[in-house]
Design a protein around this nucleic acid. Structure first.
Length: 402
DNA sequence: AGTCCACAGGAAGGGCAGGCGA
DNA sequence: TCGCCTGCCCTTCCTGTGGACT
């Protein structure tokens, strides 16, 4: 076989026609002008926010729906249009979008308030100031000019679960302290039940208007993918059945359009690499790869102790079909730590780490009662058996375990 | 019906790192 | 340099709990 040099490879790559016309159309950051099947929601949000253009405070909005139902996309779309019109007519309007899931940016009360102040050009240190002082800075900078401020807090449930609903109480009450400006809040949550955990005073002020985004069904997903396909792919570079397959996969996962689009993109990339037209087989391959990538990414980002706990769980469950219990895991974890000269956490802390691994979807942990033999968590792996071994080896290597 | 197990999970607080202003 | 602040990770102490066992 004649070996190909890297130069030849690049040359051939450049000459080869691509399947993609505009791969950006299949990314998360892509914000299409037309969002299919969300006209009702767009109109409703636009109606609620419209008073801002006449310098009247719009109602606060609380939006919820499962991931990939278009919440963020719709809100950003409405804001984009508001910005366009307020810019052209010189209307004093400030629109701020914050994703509360972004670590070290907007995941604590201090950081959110500091980040909003920064949006107004105020330089606030990352830490070091008392929270009420940050609020004062925030009040003064917001109230500096007569304007309507619309603050979008995306994934608000993550923020509230982490640091309580005090921040929402303070933000929804802020208008009492402002003389020139007014502030409205749009809260977006993936967790439909999140609002039930809020204090009543916060619940009533945040939820002046509530909008629910229902999951897309397979047909709607197909249309969304059609729209993106036209923008992203060159003509006749994919089998039309691919769209149906991506839609079907995503419909199984509570109608997640984000997932459908990612699947479409990865399948396209795999087909391009294989020098073939995008056909159904690449969707299956993409589905497997996406799952593997997410799991590995999660594992790699775990802290040292969480990795140790996860490794203990994998090892305890090796070669058995029955689930493990907290006590066993703790015993195994102790053993591993002692053997490797690592710090050992208490069982209380381990219990929290198990809960976190469960939240990440790496394990299934269910609280059960064994009657006379106590109450514990029943723990099993949520990761595909094919990858467990691979992850285990990676962890052994990464943690330099003996 | 009462006991008891093996935890779950809440509350409080310690210790440390990092940043600020005086 | 010092005191004060936040965030984070962790421990200690405690109460609560479901259901098998007595």
């Amino acid at each position: 076989m004649v070996q190909m040099s890297a130069f030849d490879f690049f040359e051939e790559y450049l000459d080869k026609p691509s399947l993609f016309k505009n791969p950006d159309a299949l990314t998360l950051k892509f914000n299409p002008d037309n969002i299919p099947h969300r006209d009702k929601e767009i109109n409703l949000i636009a109606q609620i926010l419209a008073p801002a253009l006449k310098q009247v405070k719009p109602s606060n909005i609380f939006i919820y729906g499962k991931p990939g139902t278009g919440k963020t996309l719709v809100v950003k779309n409405v804001l984009k249009n508001m910005e366009k019109i307020s810019g052209s007519k010189n209307i004093p309007l400030k629109l701020i979008y914050l994703n509360c899931k972004m670590q070290n940016v907007a995941d604590t009360e201090y950081r959110v308030v500091a980040q909003i102040s920064r949006e107004f050009g105020k330089d606030v240190p990352i830490t070091g100031l008392p929270t009420n002082e940050v609020y004062n800075e925030f009040f003064s900078v917001v109230d500096d000019t007569k304007q309507v401020v619309i603050l979008v807090l995306d994934e608000i449930d993550v923020l509230i679960n982490k640091c309580g609903d005090n921040i929402l109480y303070n933000l929804t009450r802020i208008n009492e302290n402002l003389n020139n400006a007014v502030l409205s809040i749009i809260g977006i949550s993936n967790d439909v039940n999140f609002k039930n955990n809020l204090e009543p005073r916060v619940k009533s002020s945040l939820g002046e208007e509530e909008i629910i985004f229902n999951p897309y069904d397979a047909l709607q997903l197909k249309e969304i993918l059609h729209q993106r396909a036209e923008l992203a792919f060159n003509e006749s570079s994919f089998d039309p059945l691919v769209i149906a397959k991506c839609a079907a996969y995503a419909a199984q996962q509570h109608g997640d359009a984000r997932r459908a689009i990612a699947l479409f993109r990865v399948a396209g990339e795999l087909a391009e690499r294989a020098n073939k037209i995008l056909s159904e087989e690449f969707v299956d391959m993409a589905e497997k790869q996406l799952e593997k990538d997410t799991v590995m990414e999660l594992v790699k980002n775990l802290t040292l102790q969480s990795k140790l706990v996860f490794y203990s769980i994998i090892s305890s469950l090796k070669n058995r079909v029955t689930p493990a219990f907290t006590g066993e895991i703790f015993e195994f974890y102790n053993h591993i730590c002692n053997r490797n000269g690592l710090d050992v956490l208490t069982q209380r802390r381990l219990s929290d780490l198990i809960g976190e691994l469960d939240m990440l979807g790496l394990i299934n942990a269910k609280v059960i009662s064994k009657g006379r033999y106590g109450r514990t968590r029943e723990i099993s792996l949520a990761v595909d058996a094919d990858y467990v071994n691979k992850i285990s080896i990676w962890l052994e290597d990464d943690l330099e375990l003996k």
